[in-house]
Design a protein around this nucleic acid. Structure first.
Lengths: 250, 250
DNA sequence: GTAAAACAAACCGACGGTCGGTTTTTCAAC
DNA sequence: GTTGAAAAACCGACCGTCGGTTTGTTTTAC
């Protein structure tokens, strides 16, 4: 790594390359994006690129660092606020991470599609691992706070943070899966609403929180994301989780 | 895809190539494994390889199909047994999938390390998605059976299968993470035992199963895998989920 | 015998990365 | 302010390897 003279301009250029890489990865995926794509996009030479980044993998690491930093900048103020009740923290955590405040629907769906597609498996795995490491302890702290406040009840406060994170991720994967393989709208709508309701319920159970106290995805968010309303009851004889074929040779 | 004359020999050769690819992927990872590696291993020509497989991605698909088939051959008899109680099915499902019956410890740990490492992110993502699709409906059926038998209690029987799968996967990722970044033995041992206990408890809660009825990982398996005994109580002031650094710039 | 399957290997463009060289910037000496 | 040299910034030809194609040869089946 060369000594840097003008720190500021250097960081700017690195960010510029990262921006190009990010949008290219968003469209093509990490492996499918070539260094040449970046060079073409920014009209720079190969020498220039390799002056700022050692290799393609190191570029990915830098991107993950930046994405994690952005997420944390969003989440930290919520999580670390000493005056906020635990239940409210959990709520806001899901809301902010799940929707990234306010974003265009088409952009969000495009992002979800890209994020959960095979072409970005590595990026997602690396990012997830990093987020688990940083959010685990904080989530545990919130759980303990909730127990103190009498809203949560679990014998495993230290472990439940990681479990919760796993649940959220699991829901994200399901939604990503649906976004990738779109179903007919009516089937889709009911399944999404039911599944989100199920996750809310499960999350309450595992945290030992009062029924109805946790809403991972607000109705207006569901409405915005999927264009459907979320006011139907669970319904016991729904589409029976028919994932296309329920039986095949495998 | 060429027409096949001798179906049997053709399948044998395809399997042979798949075997080589599997062990190479196990060691090097999918992306890092080159077609040439396979050719060298089997002493065949490029023409031969591309006679049996269209491309590298199609080779991966074939591998995933075979792996899924192997898992299903193990799990199906358990899950579809009409005389087996739901609780016992769940139990046996975890036991068989989690340990693959009886396997050498070093092999299993090596497999876990490889499976959850970055180098096989794509394989794992594809395999996980496939398994979610096939196991979701079956798990839902078991949950409904359990409700009928009075051992489970949940308002979301159809969704809970996918949630359960997500939980199991989440635990696997945690364990994989630990296997990849080994900690000092004492810290490791307590964390593993506590976390598995937490997952058992959470699973009971989300299924509405009686306390102590679900054991995802038997003590002897934990013993075999990690070389530690699983008889300590949860313990409220354990290592406090210290993931190395609990605070840093990010 | 002949057509297709099974294999062999030379060959191709694209890839990530390197390297020697050129231009621009920085900063101290005058 | 000018100058000069060192370092940073940048350029693009080049390299080895990759996945994949093509052309050609041998083997097998009927």
């Amino acid at each position: 790594m060369p000594r840097v003279v003008n720190e500021e301009e250097n960081a700017l250029k690195r960010a510029e390359i990262l921006d190009a890489a990010q949008s290219l990865i968003y469209v093509k995926g990490y492996e499918q994006m070539s260094i040449q794509d970046i060079l073409d996009e920014l009209q720079i030479s190969k020498g220039a690129f390799y002056h700022y980044y050692d290799s393609k993998p190191s570029l990915l690491e830098a991107l993950i660092d930046r994405m994690l930093e952005q997420v944390m900048r969003l989440v930290l103020p919520i999580i670390q606020d000493p005056h906020e009740p635990a239940l409210s923290k959990i709520q806001k955590f899901f809301t902010s991470v799940g929707t990234w405040k306010t974003a265009r629907k088409d952009f969000l769906m495009g992002f979800v599609r890209s994020w959960y597609s095979d072409k970005n498996a590595l990026l997602r795995q690396k990012m997830t691992a990093r987020m688990l490491h940083v959010s685990g302890p904080w989530l545990a702290a919130i759980v303990r706070q909730g127990i103190d406040e009498g809203v949560f009840d679990t014998p495993y406060p230290d472990q439940i943070g990681a479990v919760t994170f796993g649940m959220v991720q699991s829901l994200g994967e399901l939604i990503g899966d649906w976004a990738l393989a779109p179903q007919p709208a009516p089937v889709q709508a009911k399944r999404i609403v039911d599944t989100i309701a199920a996750y809310n319920h499960v999350l309450e159970r595992l945290l030992g929180a009062p029924s109805g106290s946790i809403v991972m995805m607000q109705p207006d968010v569901i409405e915005a994301w999927f264009g459907i309303s979320a006011k139907d009851p669970p319904g016991e004889s729904n589409v029976a989780e028919s994932t296309g074929e329920s039986q095949r040779g495998v």
